[in-house]
Lab assay of single mutants.
Amino acid sequence: AITFRFEGQEKAKKFYEKLMRQNLEATIHIHGDEVHVTVH
């Protein structure tokens, strides 16, 4: 698994949606202002 870190939720959401379109499995974790997107 690879984890990407984002400042702010907007960028993270766009990235997450892009992964979903590519049929990749990903989970999102929100830590205050920092958002972690883990790709499995």
Rank of each mutant, 00 (worst) to 15 (best):
K14H: 08
T27P: 00
A26V: 14
M20F: 04
V37I: 09
A12C: 04
E10G: 04
T38Y: 07
H29K: 08
F15S: 00
Y16D: 00
D33A: 09
G8Y: 09
V39I: 14
I30D: 05
E7L: 13
A1W: 15
E17D: 10
E34T: 09
A26M: 07
Q22K: 10
V35G: 01
E17M: 07
V35F: 10
E34W: 11
V39A: 03
R5W: 15
E25T: 13
F4S: 08
H40K: 12
Q22H: 11
Y16P: 00
D33Q: 09
G32L: 07
F6D: 04
T3W: 11
G8K: 06
E34S: 07
E34K: 06
Q22N: 10
T3F: 06
H31W: 11
K18F: 15
K13V: 12
V35E: 00
I28A: 02
V35R: 01
H40Y: 14
K14P: 02
A26N: 01
T27F: 09
G32A: 08
T38N: 04
Q9E: 14
I28V: 05
Q9F: 15
A1C: 15
Q9T: 11
V37Y: 01
R5P: 11
H31Y: 13
E25P: 12
E7N: 11
I2W: 06
E10T: 05
V37P: 00
Y16M: 10
V35H: 02
F4E: 09
E25S: 12
K14T: 08
R5E: 11
K13N: 10
H36P: 00
H29T: 14
V37G: 00
F15L: 03
I2D: 03
L24N: 02
A26I: 12
H36F: 14
F4Q: 07
K11M: 13
G32Q: 07
V37N: 00
K11D: 14
L24R: 06
H29A: 10
V39T: 03
K11V: 11
M20A: 04
G32I: 05
A1D: 15
V37S: 00
T3I: 14
Y16I: 11
F6L: 02
H29I: 12
Q9N: 10
Y16H: 03
H40R: 11
K14F: 07
K18V: 08
I28N: 00
Q22S: 10
K18L: 13
L24K: 06
F15Y: 03
R21T: 08
Y16K: 02
I28R: 00
I28Y: 05
F6K: 02
Q9S: 12
R5I: 15
N23F: 07
D33Y: 08
H40N: 08
I2L: 08
K13R: 13
F6Y: 02
F15I: 02
H29F: 10
G32E: 08
G32M: 06
E7A: 13
L19A: 05
G8T: 15
M20Y: 03
A12V: 02
Q22W: 14
V35Y: 12
H36A: 03
K18R: 10
E7T: 11
H29Q: 10
T3E: 09
M20W: 03
H40V: 09
L24F: 12
V35Q: 01
F15T: 01
T38E: 05
R5H: 14
I2R: 06
N23C: 14
K13T: 08
H29Y: 13
E34A: 08
T38L: 09
E7H: 12
K18A: 14
D33S: 11
D33T: 13
G32T: 03
L19T: 02
A26K: 01
H29E: 13
A12S: 02
K14A: 13
A1K: 13
I2S: 03
T3R: 07
I2K: 07
T38D: 04
L24I: 14
L19M: 09
G8D: 15
A12T: 01
L24S: 03
H31D: 10
K13M: 15
A26S: 03
T3A: 04
E17R: 04
I28T: 01
I30Q: 07
H29V: 12
D33W: 08
T27H: 08
D33K: 10
E25C: 12
A1E: 14
D33G: 07
A26R: 01
H36M: 09
H36I: 13
K18S: 12
H36L: 12
T38V: 14
L19R: 00
T3K: 05
H31L: 10
K18T: 10
E10F: 04
E7Q: 12
F6R: 00
H36V: 10
V37D: 00
N23L: 07
R5Y: 15
H36Q: 04
E10Q: 06
H36S: 06
K13F: 14
V35W: 15
G32H: 04
G32W: 07
V35N: 01
F4M: 04
H29D: 06
K11F: 07
R21H: 06
I2A: 03
T27M: 06
V39H: 03
E17N: 07
I2Y: 05
Q22R: 09
E34Q: 08
Q22A: 12
Y16L: 12
A26Q: 01
V39R: 02
N23K: 08
D33H: 09
T3D: 07
T38W: 06
G32P: 05
E25L: 13
R21F: 09
R21Q: 12
I30F: 10
E10P: 03
E17Q: 07
D33R: 10
E34R: 05
N23A: 05
K11E: 15
K11N: 10
T38S: 04
H40E: 06
G8S: 15
A1N: 13
G8Q: 11
H36T: 12
H29N: 06
F4N: 05
